[in-house]
Amino acid sequence: MTKLILRKLGWALLTIAFVLLLNFFLFRVMGDPTRLLKDPRLSQATIEAIRVRFGLDKPVINCFETLNPIKASLNACGVNPFNTQFAAYLSNLLKGDLGVSFHSQRPVAELLTERLWNTLLLIGAGQILAIIIGIILGLVAAWKARTVLDYSALVGSLTVWSLPTFWLGILLLFWGSNYLGLPLGGKETIGSGLTGLKRLGDIGTHLLLPTLTFTLVFIGEYMLIMRSTVLDVLSEDYILTAKAKGLSTFQILKDHALRNAMLPIVTIVALNLGFTVAGAIQIETVFSWPGLGLTIFEAVGRRDYPVLQGAFLLLAVSVVLANVIADLLYTFLDPRVRLA
């Protein structure tokens, strides 16, 4: 058991290391760093500061020196590995320093933490609703397999799955803002000066449509998965035992089917985190919800590379960590694995 946990943590670390490397290479090798320094928004002093901070005058890493377009004339190999851009990148990361935004000149780390919570709020609300509704629908569809109810739920899920997230968001926004008087976007009414409960209510109305979009987009998938898992569970022998024991259909669904089918859902939620992040980017963009997704959208538009790099890193690492947590949770929830 401990061995299993350690192995999983080990893989998570390896994945994070891969993400760090990827992030470094993307922005330092593919994204020509000289371009960073030609940004007209930057003063000469800032450029100099960036050079030093990222060690742009040093070789990229030991033998990849030639990849560095603004390298000083150092000999190819035999460079001190601690005196490279990669080393500088890692040590900055360890210090929690993700650089400074070109656009707002604020530290990226500060900017991102501020927005992380908004994203978590949106994702949390949307996912929880989607999971609960999806599970219930899937359970009922499996129970009523091969009936009209089942088929309509199936077609409905496939349709919802096929909707581009941002488009569904746009439609709901169009409808909500024109006919329901809901706000056009943002997290709260700017300059309203509301406090306390009133402010929470205000945030709630702003959260309504983004959450609805999120929920609708993900219900379909959870329903489909739940349906097929429950179908498997319901054809197991222990369900027949439960029926022979005289338990009511409701009891069997609740105490036996749901419980056993919940386990795969944990894994699916984890595997879905990538899609969840994709959903958040699109929904936040449509509703101007000030989270990490909107940050990415804005950074792309402003060519604000430090912010883009930081946001990508934060998202990727969060997804990896959430995956490990889900994996461990699964291990813990399934007695066959836990007590193995």
Partner: peptide, 23 residues
């Protein structure tokens, strides 16, 4: 398969955004 797992975990859309934005 380990490599596949690693790639599987990294969220697609943000990576695609970064890649397209950088090229």
């Amino acid at each position: 398969m380990r490599f596949t797992d690693i790639v599987l975990v990294i969220p697609d859309l943000p990576l695609a955004v970064v890649l397209v934005a950088l090229t």
